[in-house]
């Protein structure tokens, strides 16, 4: 993943968007393929989500949200549902732990800033992971990203899988 992710805010949500809204439970068991869930993202909460994302010719959607984005269940399908709709990042004021970890584990860029009120639909944003800031591409405003180094490194490396494989390889090699 490059250190600057740029995209346009095409979706805006308020506070407390829960995972049931992102992907309803009845679908969770119906596929093991991550891409399946994209077609149903926000089906019952914001039925225009999929169309809006897919009609963006640049495929560089950024979702803007308030506090507590992704609360509720631990279903990782919520991450896939958003990720596979050409969404490059979610910028929100906070994320519950499970959703945040699920996203980072999949190399999906979720960033927390103190306030998203300076940003709006249509804004072109640059999410600069090296300097940990989100800025408008026209340079008019900036917000600091709250993220620790471990999380950032994981995002850069596209998730944790590589690291786990190495640990498993070591453990197995150590067995007699």
């Amino acid at each position: 993943m490059s250190s600057i992710i740029s995209g346009r805010v095409t979706i805006k949500f308020g506070d407390d968007i829960n995972t049931d809204y992102i992907i309803p439970a009845y679908l969770l068991q119906e596929a093991w393929d991550k891409k399946f869930f994209a077609d149903y993202a926000f089906e019952r909460y914001s039925p225009t989500f999929v169309k809006t994302c897919r009609s963006n010719p640049d495929k560089d959607n950024v979702v803007l949200a308030g506090k507590n984005f992704g609360c509720g269940s631990s279903r990782e399908q919520a991450v896939y549902a958003i990720q596979y709709n050409d969404v490059r990042a979610v910028v929100a004021e906070s994320f519950p732990d499970i959703f945040f970890r699920n996203s980072i584990n999949n190399g999906f860029c979720v960033v927390r800033v103190v306030s998203t009120s300076e940003f709006d639909l249509g804004d072109k944003l640059e999410i600069d992971l090296s300097n940990l800031v989100v800025r408008k591409a026209d340079g008019t405003c900036e917000a600091k990203i709250m993220m620790n180094e471990e999380e950032r490194d994981l995002l850069f490396s596209g998730g944790r899988l590589g690291q786990i494989k190495e640990r498993l390889r070591k453990r197995l090699s150590a067995t007699i």
């Binding site: 631990s74 279903r75 990782e76 399908q77 699920n102 584990n105 471990e150 944790r160 786990i164 453990r171």
Partner: peptide, 19 residues
Amino acid sequence: FGIGTTEAEYALAMGEIYD
């Protein structure tokens, strides 16, 4: 703790969670 698919898959292999 509740965890997602990826973390559960890793925990299944390693018996650990990270960071």
